[in-house]
Amino acid sequence: MSPLPQTSSPLRRPARLAVNAGLVIFLALYAAIAFLQPNYLEPGLFMNFLRRAAPLVILACGQLYVILTGGFDLSMGAVATLAVLAASILINGDPETTWAVIGTLYVMGIAVGLVNGLVVAFLKVPSIIATLGAMLSVNGLALAWSGGAARGDLPDNFRNLGRLVWRGVPLVGTLPLAAVVLAGFVALAWWGLNGTVYGKRALAVGDNPRAAELAGTPVAATRILAFVVSAVSAVTAGILIGGFSGVSVNAGEGLELQAIAACVIGGAQLLGGRGSIWSAVFGALSLFALFTLLNLIGLPQALRDSIQGVILIAAVGASLWRTRRRT
């Protein structure tokens, strides 16, 4: 075979657009909300918006880890439900045990994440199937344990994590504790991806696991850790949800799909290799702003799910179209 002259492809800048896409969508949607309901521009209501959006943003950050490595985690919603139900059963109204139980919740979450990761990394079960199985199992276990209905009780010191709001804070006026948890979690998630080599490994694994493995990357460990982070985020979100919504057997229902949709809206690429923590954060804020907007317009709750489905497809379609156009 005789070589042809290599044509150098036109030079392209790496896509930084993805980050901005989520932010732009969020700003547009929030502007629409403020147009309908001007008091959303007050710091207090914005903080309240953040408080309610916190679980979704946290879930999206966890989901992003898995998406970057080329997988999905469908078990997040179930883990969040488990966290809520287990907390109310184990604490059962005794504020003394709150912190110990929170520790237990994280241990349970990490266990689920480890199982997901091990199944995906070593049994080579596609993550969408492995975590679907985990979702059903965890949901079933949680329901069986609670007897199918909310039982037990959550003391105030637990619920405060989700609903406590400090007043008279300089600059912002009110500051929900959930917003602080949110900021802390996002900072940690950012650090994991940008402050350690983990983020680059995850991107390489999601982009081309075979090449990563041959280059010496610990592919299995990278994948397993992503599922553990995802489960930890689900427990964290569950704790916040338990705080402001109370105990319910369907506390986490559907959250996994919202988290995936959020990442994609923010510009993360399904099946891995592209995305940043800001994809998750602004994607989740956009999605939550959209829900808020639909509420304000007075759309029935049920239609929200349909719209979420359409958005998920549209976001993935748009990201694939972008990729195709660039290559």
């Binding site: 983020g199 075979r210 592209r274």
Partner: peptide, 29 residues
């Protein structure tokens, strides 16, 4: 393409892939 490169990552990240893979997890990237 199939075994050597993470095609959507930068030239730099591809060149650093092995170093970063063999370094301690908490090394700054």
């Amino acid at each position: 393409k199939r075994e050597g490169l993470a095609l959507r990552q930068s030239v730099r990240d591809n060149a650093l892939l092995t170093l970063r893979s063999m370094a301690g997890l908490f090394t700054r990237p």
